[in-house]
Design a protein around this nucleic acid. Sequence first.
DNA 1: GCCGTTTTCGGCCCGACTGTTTTCAGTCG
Length: 576
Amino acid sequence: MTIHNADVAEVFEEIGDLLSIQGENAFRVRAYRRAAQIVRSLPHELAEMGGPGEYAALPGIGKDLAAKITELVRTGRLGALERLRRRVPSGVRELLSLPGMGPVRVHALMTKLHVKSRDELRSALSAGRLERLRGFGPALQQRLRTALAAKAASDIAKRLPLSVAAQYAEPLSRYFASIPGVTRAEIAGSYRRGRDTVGDLDVLVCAPASVNVFSTLQGYPDLREMSASGTTKAAGVLRNGLQFDVRVVPKESFGAALQYFTGSKDHSIHLRRRAQERGLKLSEYGLYRGRRRLAGDTEEGVYQALGLSWIPPELREDRGEVEASAKRALPRLVERSDLKGDLHVHTDATDGHNSLEDMVAAARAQKLSYMAITDHTKYLGIVHGLDADRLARRCEAIDALNEKLRGFTVLKGAEVDILEDGRLALPDAVLAKLDVIVIAVHSHFELPEAKQTARVLRALERPHVSILAHPSGRLLGERAPLALDFDRLLEAVHDRGCFLEVNGQPLRLDLDDVHIKAARDRGVLLSLASDAHSIDQLAYLGGAVRQARRGWASEEDVLNARPLGEVRKLLQGAKR
DNA sequence: GCCGTTTTCGGCCCGACTGTTTTCAGTCG
């Protein structure tokens, strides 16, 4: 059995939970949870690294955790976890996820009432057995009843794709901004960091203490319920199930609060530790030496006072950005305005909604100077896919259009399916006539890793192939990523002189941030693509840019940030 | 359990809110 990083991370999460329930030192618990985070953001499989020495070189992994990783990778099991599981029954862990339930109360339930699962908690509640338990008052009992009922109805809050969350986030932010006395309202949190999915909304409101920001919140149309409300802090749930937290801060604290509320948690902790090392204290109210405030009205000021350059929100995951910022070694992240073209676009020749001419006009309006038309080729799944003849006629049409265009060039391309065995859906002779061959998996998503990897590697071996589109094949919330050996894939793409796509479709956002960074570190250029199927969808380039920024990509890392002449040369290099 | 310009022990981010308790522990972000 191959142990993946996600498996190791899950083991560390579980150990953290079980230790906390046993009343273990909170910092030991945090070390395990932190390790889970670290392992999850590794671009390479632990199983393929050099062993304990290399593990322990990772920041946050010491001798003990390195040994545990080694045991897991070698045997697929971990003795320490099995011993813990014997002491804490399996159902107890899920009690931790109930509201108001932390390690102390879960421990009390387990030892004093022998409650070991959600079901047993439900019975204990109705039997009134919690009445005599210290720390479980009537209000908490009611919260637990509500939560247990919701869980039963499987109404569990999930992370939403960023694009879906945006539909609720933007109106909410406008609502707060419109309140008299409020000078500014921002959605912070993972939304501001541009994560591909959002678990809740963190809203930061700037207003003087005299303004009662929450007086009309009850009447907000998207509101389902309020769960907490103080003078500076409120929380609730929107109609779509999305949780939100609001904090109100005065002007002089806005920068510090924006930093704190944007997170990530690990990034903020890193900053606060850095402050502490300098004899300072950082909180959402500002950066202080004793009682004297050194910074706080702007984020820039806070970072600067800590000896750092401002760090773009997309990088704030504690993956080395603080260290890089201290050394003034952060990349200048790619921006939408750096893009000069789009190398993955569809038209109504297949499943797109607009004509070639309309797509060109829209691309020009988006300040692009070139675009590759990459309609689908014929295969089982797409009825209207192009065969060799139709593709040839399409090329003639593009040639004719290019004759007329000034200051814009259409590249001839195709999105070619990778068949189950790794062959491509069109013969090499047909592909040879095109400028851009985008290849992609659109079927047989469930192949085991060895087969899936071999399949894609075989496709990359074909001559004329340029770009691997939406490499993981994932659809947020709908389809898991393909089982692929990404290290081998990256090696092949690099050796072959090909490129990896960052697809900006809202449910794809594929590659993900971790793999973008790995590609960048390996020197593989990225194609930031809209995969537009209509003129409106050219805006998805923005999503690709945001995703690329999360992977530390700068203009130099992006194929389509280069002028057409250079792109042509690079594409030619991928042919052979 | 990790870590080191306060180094091999003794720290480990910081504050708001809730509920239960009568001054604060626990949870949460």
